[in-house]
């Protein structure tokens, strides 16, 4: 009888222990990752915004948006092995420009980086845990001086057009062909370049926060989701920093948002990155299509907009070129067409 009571006690303790142990572990994990959790929650608001704005809604497309723009922030902290990446580089640059980090821009979240983050958090009155989430990113951005651009008054009537010069990292607004405003921007990194071509603003939205800043102007680039938007990393403006989108200071993008309606033409000028190697035909899209369209336009053939879509007008321009040179006019992008156009 006594032995049975002892066994009973043992089973009760065993059950309680097996319940308490995972709960404790979860609590500890939650405590350590609370900044990370808050960052996650800020990312979670995107699908809601997306739904509201009627842009791609499903998870795959949302992933595409984040992948295209890469503006959703990873939570950064000191870990073993250390975290590395362009976001760490951006963090180091931001801390360096604010004078709290004096190490190299290595892209590795090392001890010096963590100490700089803690110093900055202390200075700003934030939780000094060395973990960089949206609150810390925003505090970094808020401390960054934004160059003043004139032109916040009445916007003149007239046809608006935006030209983004990728090489100079500038965005220029034209109204009826006359320059109206000029802003510095950040463009895509070498491995994730900003798409070159002639696109239109097809959606406008505001206050997504985080890496997208305060305004979003979506472009109709056919192979991904790209846009012009604000940022929480203002020190990156003037550099190659994004995953293809065009970043602006929040104050500037707010001004641009006010100036340009949906449908505004956006010419992104620069050197298209993709070589033309495949046989292009109607229905194809891509940066190589832009290369072909720009080369046709340079030779005087009417392709309409160099919008990265191999449509009827592009096919018709190719046919005209083929006829002019005595080739069979089938409207397809054959090697002979590329040779005559000098596209590579």
């Amino acid at each position: 009888m006594h032995r049975l009571r002892w066994v009973e006690k043992f089973l009760v303790w065993l059950t309680a222990g097996s319940l308490l142990l995972p709960l404790t572990a979860c609590g500890v994990f939650w405590f350590l990752a609370r900044d990370k959790a808050s960052a996650q929650s800020s990312i979670d608001i995107y699908p809601a915004k997306v739904q509201e704005l009627d842009i791609p809604r499903d998870e795959a497309q949302m992933g595409q948006l984040e992948e295209a723009c890469c503006e959703s922030d990873r939570v950064l902290y000191f870990a073993k092995p250390p975290m590395t990446g362009e976001d760490v580089e951006e963090l180091q640059r931001g801390l360096q420009q604010l004078g709290v980090y004096h190490g190299p821009i290595s892209g590795t979240f090392d001890r010096r980086t963590m100490e700089a983050v803690i110093a900055f958090q202390r200075q700003e009155g934030l939780t000094s845990d060395g973990v960089v989430g949206p609150v810390t990113w925003q505090a970094l951005a808020d401390d960054f001086p934004v160059p003043v651009v004139e032109g916040s008054g009445q916007v003149p009537e007239g046809e608006k057009e935006i030209v983004i010069d990728v090489a100079r990292r500038q965005l220029i607004v034209y109204i009826d062909g006359k320059e109206y405003q000029r802003y510095p921007v950040a463009v895509g990194l070498g491995k994730t370049p900003t798409p070159i071509g002639e696109f239109r603003i097809v959606q406008k939205s505001m206050n997504w926060g985080g890496g997208f800043g305060t305004r979003w102007l979506g472009l109709n680039v056919p192979w991904g989701i790209y846009g012009i938007h604000g940022t929480n990393k203002p020190w990156s403006i003037g550099t190659q920093a994004s995953a293809g989108c065009v970043r602006m200071f929040n104050r500037h993008v707010e001004q641009l948002y006010r100036i340009t309606p949906e449908g505004t033409l956006v010419r992104i000028v620069g050197r298209p990155s993709d070589p033309v190697t495949r046989l292009l035909k109607p229905g194809n899209t891509g940066q190589d299509v832009v290369t072909l369209q720009l080369a046709l336009a340079e030779k005087g053939y009417d392709v309409g907009l160099a919008d990265a879509r191999y449509g009827e007008q592009t096919a018709s321009a190719v046919k005209q070129l083929q006829e002019d040179y005595g080739l069979y006019p089938d409207g397809l992008g054959w090697p002979d067409v590329y040779l005559l156009l000098g596209v590579r």
């Binding site: 069979y328 090697p335 002979d336």
Partner: peptide
């Protein structure tokens, strides 16, 4: 030859 006459020649 369709489309590759010139490149074949070169």
């Amino acid at each position: 030859v369709q489309g590759t006459l010139l490149t074949d020649f070169f």
